[in-house]
Design a binder for these strands. Sequence first.
DNA 1: CGGTATCCGACAGGATACTG
DNA 2: CAGTATCCTGTCGGATACCG
Lengths: 127, 127
Amino acid sequence: MDTVQSYLHACPARTVLTTLANKWTLLVLASLRNSDGPLRFNELRRRLNGVTQKMLTQTLRALERDGLVSRTVYPTVPPRVEYAVTTLGAEVGDLFHSLGEWSEQHVDEILAARKAFDERPEPAPLA
Amino acid sequence: MDTVQSYLHACPARTVLTTLANKWTLLVLASLRNSDGPLRFNELRRRLNGVTQKMLTQTLRALERDGLVSRTVYPTVPPRVEYAVTTLGAEVGDLFHSLGEWSEQHVDEILAARKAFDERPEPAPLA
DNA sequence: CGGTATCCGACAGGATACTG
DNA sequence: CAGTATCCTGTCGGATACCG
């Protein structure tokens, strides 16, 4: 059991993926990566149609915590908070951009495989 | 709301990630990729120290469903079932191998950023 | 504007027991 | 050997309400 734990915890890919695999993380990262300059909280919110305040905050905190996104607060009234990708965040963005391109090229095959799997007949109960 | 749904569902990267981001998926894929030839259920089970039968079965079915892993049953007694990566599965394996290498190189930075974030002091309550 | 706090339903995933 | 079936717990993520 502890072998597993250490295996899983020691696995760098999991460390990275655990943050990235959440529902909005990649979308946030992609949005920030593709914009010119930093974005404010509600700008981001509008681009990610459907995200709740809670989830956007939570996602941004997780990315900030891992050093993938920077958060800059301007102490004005009303408050202004800007988010941007860091160097590290841009690198992750590049890696997942590759994954995204592969996905676009092969998603049809995956979907077809899935369809075939779901539609395949039950093995005859050898009456 | 449906904008989100269609956005999320149409995103190929999410289609791929949703399968891959589960706890054992990458480990299974990596194990099969790094072995010489196919592996049997319990061989796989032993390599992934700590996985339960249920989760291994579930993970393998998901990979098979997406066409990333092939499952071959030999109708012998006792039953023999072999799992292997498909061409598609090997490509995904390669992509995540790159991610794994990046992770190994930068996991320290991420962990450091995380530690710094967690240890940073509360902003003084400006008494 | 940019959050925090709370409640809640859905689902991933682990433990255990049984089967062809 | 290679699974299924069942139960149970923790976490993810959405809805809603309130705050500096």
